[in-house]
Design a protein around this nucleic acid. Structure first.
Length: 284
DNA sequence: ACCCAGGCGGGCG
DNA sequence: CGCCCGCATGGG
């Protein structure tokens, strides 16, 4: 195993069980105080080990030791300075509790296409079921390489008929998935969004069929590392109204405006801590 | 048997 | 613009 270091606290369990894209195609286990994770990407397979705060990795498939190290650093946001982030988002007692409860939770940075597929799947769905669908899509459309079934490329799904996509259990999302796959394979250039500002990149994503305000923010946050993105789902809407608006209903637009003012540049980190805190407490 | 889950698009007033 | 509705599927 190759050692790797990170900038401050890192809690693998919170990060992996948090419903970020990694959740949908990785396997986490812990025994004898050793944590273990493996996942497939569009290039190969990565294994992570965490023991006594020592992090290490192994890779198979199309990775070199060096490129796998880069994959792990970037995937788990290990360059993010969590101490500084906590200082900047810790604006009130509620956030303070959320941070103290989930210290070490990091925002992962995933492949844009992989993130798009996972979050189109998330609409009107639940995390457990999303995971099953993604596993089946890897089985059905994943490319076999070195004995590893890799995460499906958009081309493989773009070339499929709708019924085969639906056979993975996607339900009504089948048409959105194929449409997005076609665009990623042909017309839509995902690389272009890295260099774009948050607002423009969001507009561009929302032109795709099946991608609205929330899914676009998820793709920008988890796929492009744009930390200004603040995905507003039912949990965030409820906890924000309850915590910052005296329990009164607010439009998604108003909530965005509030988050932008309160946690400028780090809305996404604030969102993750609020989200997991709200869910763990069952705040409704 | 029910109920609901990390939304979205389309139709309506 | 804001609201309301239907939508596939399967686990609790």
């Amino acid at each position: 195993m190759n050692p790797i270091s990170c900038n401050g606290a890192f809690n693998l369990k919170y990060t992996v069980e948090s419903g970020q894209p990694l959740t949908f195609h990785s396997q986490y286990s812990k025994r004898d105080n050793v944590e273990h994770l493996e996942y497939v990407t569009t290039k190969g397979k990565i294994e992570i080990r965490l023991s006594n705060s020592r992090l290490s990795y192994l890779s198979e498939g199309g990775y070199t030791r060096r490129s796998a190290g880069k994959e792990v650093m970037e995937r788990f946001g290990l360059r993010d300075d969590l101490q500084d982030i906590y200082k900047r988002i810790n604006t009130d007692p509620f956030m303070a509790k959320a941070i103290s409860e989930f210290r070490g939770l990091r925002i992962t940075q995933n492949d844009p296409w992989e993130t798009t597929l996972c979050f189109i799947m998330s609409q009107f769905n639940n995390i457990k079921r999303i995971k099953g669908i993604i596993q089946r899509m890897i089985g059905e459309f994943g490319y076999e390489f070195d004995g590893i079934r890799l995460f499906p490329a958009p081309e493989a799904i773009a070339a499929s008929d709708i019924a085969r996509i639906r056979s993975c259990g996607t339900g009504f999302r089948d048409k959105y998935i194929r449409s997005a796959a076609e665009q990623f394979a042909h017309s839509f250039n995902p690389e272009r969004l890295y260099g774009m500002k948050y607002e423009a990149a969001k507009e561009s994503l929302m032109e795709l069929d099946g991608i609205g305000d929330k899914v676009a923010d998820c793709i920008l946050l988890f796929g492009y590392g744009k930390k200004e993105a603040f995905p507003i789902d039912v949990w965030i809407k409820r906890v924000m109204e309850r915590t910052y608006f005296n329990g009164r209903k607010r439009s998604v637009q108003k909530i965005h405006e509030f988050a932008d003012l309160r946690w400028p540049g780090l809305q996404g980190y604030a969102q993750q801590y609020l989200f997991h805190y709200a869910r763990s407490r069952g705040i409704k």
